[in-house]
């Protein structure tokens, strides 16, 4: 939807001749538009449609109920805790990821022997399947046979294995560590690309003017990283907000909803309550939240503004 308005806007403002050239371009952009329609617009539309229906537990569409499902969603006593969890989850993961990646990118930007190897090693968590990585962590944290628990008991920190993934708060912390771990490669490489695009003259000029290292970083390097950081933060927010595999594996066995984010809650409503209609309504809310975050972000940070 938003895709087509974005393309219409310039077409409307410009002359009719240019409008005709848009038509002429259609055969070339047509396949892409078709793809976007079938895998993005149609499913989203279907989801919104489902959120206004009453759907039986086995999946047959019974009748339209207007906004009843949304009323149920907002009256849900579990929602405040879930939204709080979601905010903590997104803010902590994205902040930690960006801070660690900034440091890591700075390090990888300096020439040193074996840099290529280290750069390749940083990609590994990205290359491995998230489900696989998370499962490895999950087993390592198991209280009875997890290698991590065994290590902690062997060095005497714990008397016996602790259920890191069995209680809401520690499980959330473990999930955050894993999410940061798998988000770092992409973020680091985006920032690294930004660092390499900084002209040497600006750094030299800062040095000539007598700026210290820290001052150079804050006033010269960081502003020039704006574009790279904007992309990294935006993609990370959307990705982390919508993350299911990590949370489902790590916090999935915890009873109740004390460790759920909006995404895992949607999944539980679908899997255990079998409410396709309610989970569709929740998904619409989820989607609206992401759109609002992105809109606020684009409006305030102005990622495309040149320095």
């Amino acid at each position: 939807m938003s895709v087509s308005t974005a393309q219409k806007r310039p077409a409307k403002r410009k002359s009719a001749r240019e409008g005709a050239s848009f038509l002429a371009a259609l055969p070339w952009i047509g396949p892409a538009l078709l793809l976007i329609f079938t895998i993005v617009v149609f499913p989203a539309g279907y989801m919104i449609y489902n959120s206004t229906r009453k759907i039986s537990q086995v999946g047959t569409d019974l009748k339209g109920v207007g906004f009843d499902n949304f009323a149920k969603v907002f009256a849900d006593p579990n929602l405040p805790r879930i939204l709080l969890n979601t905010v903590v989850w997104v803010v902590v993961v994205v902040t930690l990821t960006v801070v660690i990646s900034l440091a890591l990118a700075q390090f990888l930007n300096k020439p040193f022997p074996g840099r290529t190897l280290v750069r390749m090693a940083v990609i590994v968590p990205w290359a491995a399947s998230v489900v696989m990585t998370t499962t490895v962590f999950y087993y390592a944290m198991d209280p009875n046979y997890g290698i991590f628990n065994k290590f902690l008991t062997d060095i005497g920190l714990l008397d016996e294995g602790f259920g890191f993934t069995k209680n809401a708060v520690p499980a959330m912390a473990v999930a955050i560590v894993i999410a940061v771990f798998v988000s770092i490669p992409f973020t680091t490489y985006t920032i690294l690309a930004g660092l390499q695009a900084i002209p040497g003259e600006t750094l030299e000029a800062a040095r000539v003017d007598g700026a210290g290292r820290w001052r150079t970083y804050i006033s010269v390097i960081l502003p020039q990283l704006r574009g790279a950081l904007a992309v990294a933060v935006l993609i990370n927010i959307i990705n982390v907000f919508n993350n299911l595999p990590i949370l489902k594996i790590i916090t999935g066995s915890i009873p109740g909803y004390s460790a759920d984010t909006l995404m895992t809650y949607i999944f539980k409503v679908l899997q255990f309550d079998r409410r396709l209609d309610i989970s569709s309504a929740l998904s619409v809310v989820n989607f609206a939240i992401v759109l609002v975050i992105v809109a606020i972000y684009v409006k305030t940070v102005k990622p495309m503004k040149e320095v």
């Binding site: 895709v3 976007i36 993005v40 989801m47 998904s283 989607f287 759109l291 990622p303 495309m304």
Partner: peptide, 18 residues
């Protein structure tokens, strides 16, 4: 285009349960 792209990405990611 960035807004549109982000919206499309958001849609793509939120609708993967479909």
């Amino acid at each position: 285009a960035v807004v549109a792209g982000a919206a499309a990405a958001a849609l793509l990611l939120t609708s993967c349960g479909f």
